[in-house]
Write a protein that binds this DNA or RNA. Structure first.
Lengths: 241, 241
DNA sequence: TTTTAAAATAAGGCGAGCCTTAAACTGGGC
DNA sequence: GCCCAGTTTAAGGCTCGCCTTATTTTAAAA
């Protein structure tokens, strides 16, 4: 019954399984291992340990999902992570692409009382600087507030949308996106989609930055596009078709 | 040459040696072990490891001190620790006696860039909530600003002073002090000192709190008194004698 | 000088979280 | 229905930071 004080490693596994099981139902062991830069054998071991603690459900050869307990813990860790990102970015003025990694270290050393105090201090922000929702247990009016976000790849040629979230986050990805000027708030229009899962050609709109005065174009691979989630404004002529 | 990414454990040893070698020159191994709740054998082992890395100088049977490198690291960790305490206490509103322990965990997970940003955000505070100086490398006008603090025990009967710092800090001590109303800013007068290293009897002055309306008296053991540092106002009649 | 308490050394062990190599298994595509 | 890539198991090993028990050394007090 003693909810052991879980360490960094276990927390990273939970976060990883959480991210990977968002889209598809189960997180493949190899994907977990890859994301954590660990051998598949080690990942299997650790997943077993987490299963023994009832945090994870593992179906051999299929993949891993979080149990209710595990999901609760993962949500707490993610909330903590995103709150730190808010503080580091909005208050301490650290770089948008840097705060993810910095928060990744802090999140494992943060007492729950600190998380709550931080949340209040920040004014209960609804998302992190990368657009991801900050879950609050008890507030189950989730779907109500958050606008439905679509993967960028779901847009048809000619459609426009506003980038709202990058997910899952990774340092390399964020660095790349900031160079391309592809951040939340940016309006993009799909100019063309290359066949055979080729790159998307985007026209940048929205607030141009000094470094990237609009209008400009960007070619974005499917790999990157899969991490971009947008809010699509329905235009006149579009409807329930 | 690769300044390895030091971990929590090594950092705690450096902090401990730093604290213990403030007063006397060398930190006895047993004292280090006691403070870290570790066996003397383990402490000896770890001190050897730190010595190999050039962070610590160990004289067998005498004790341990920090090298220049070790002292630099310890100062960085202490600065980080105290800045977190400031944020947690002054901004997040967490309890005065709680922030020490909470900061103790964060300090090992904080990137230098975060430390600097935090320092700037807080407005370069000169002390932590417990009155301990926040060192800034490069700012060697240290002695100039900081008023000389005396150990409480150095006061003679009848003398008054203002508590300015608690040092070294520990959770249990801080909890005890907050119960007694003995915090920085509190003015105390020594009413009597029991012989044979007995307790000091103090009269509380300064800002009374609802819980502890002045005037009130407190008996403080030598053990506790050793952690209290005060600023002594010279009164008329006192001088260079 | 003798005694004593602290400190150091030696030896053996433990768990966590990784690693590699090698062999066995299986789901899904051909 | 077969085969392969992805998984899992097995076995052995490594580092870190701890632990205990036992023995030796030493500084400093008596």
């Amino acid at each position: 019954m003693k909810h052991a004080p879980f360490n960094e490693s276990a927390e990273m596994y939970l976060k990883t399984v959480s991210e990977l099981s968002l889209a598809g139902g189960m997180a493949p062991t190899s994907a977990v291992a890859r994301r954590l830069a660990v051998s598949p054998v080690s990942a299997t071991e650790m997943i077993h340990r987490l299963e023994e603690q009832g945090l994870v459900a593992h179906v051999p050869y299929r993949g891993t999902t979080l149990t209710a307990d595990g999901a609760r813990m993962a949500r707490a860790i993610e909330r903590c992570h995103r709150l730190w990102e808010c503080l580091l970015f909005s208050h301490l003025g650290l770089a948008w692409e840097a705060v993810h990694e910095l928060a990744c270290r802090l999140e494992h050393a943060t007492d729950p009382t600190v998380v709550d105090a931080l949340d209040a201090y920040l004014g209960f922000p609804s998302t992190c600087p990368h657009g991801n929702t900050i879950d609050r247990a008890g507030t189950d009016a989730e779907a109500a507030e958050a606008p439905l976000l679509l993967p960028l790849a779901s847009l048809a040629v000619g459609e426009s949308a506003t980038i709202r979230a990058i997910r899952p986050e990774s340092s390399l990805l964020l660095k790349h996106l900031v160079q391309q000027g592809l951040q939340p708030g940016r309006v993009v229009t799909v100019l063309e989609v290359a066949p055979f899962d080729g790159p998307l050609l985007l026209a940048l709109g929205g607030n141009p930055t000094p470094a990237h005065p609009a209008p400009e174009q960007r070619a974005v691979g499917q790999e990157v596009a899969a991490h971009l989630f947008v809010e699509h404004y329905l235009e006149a002529g579009e409807g329930a078709s």
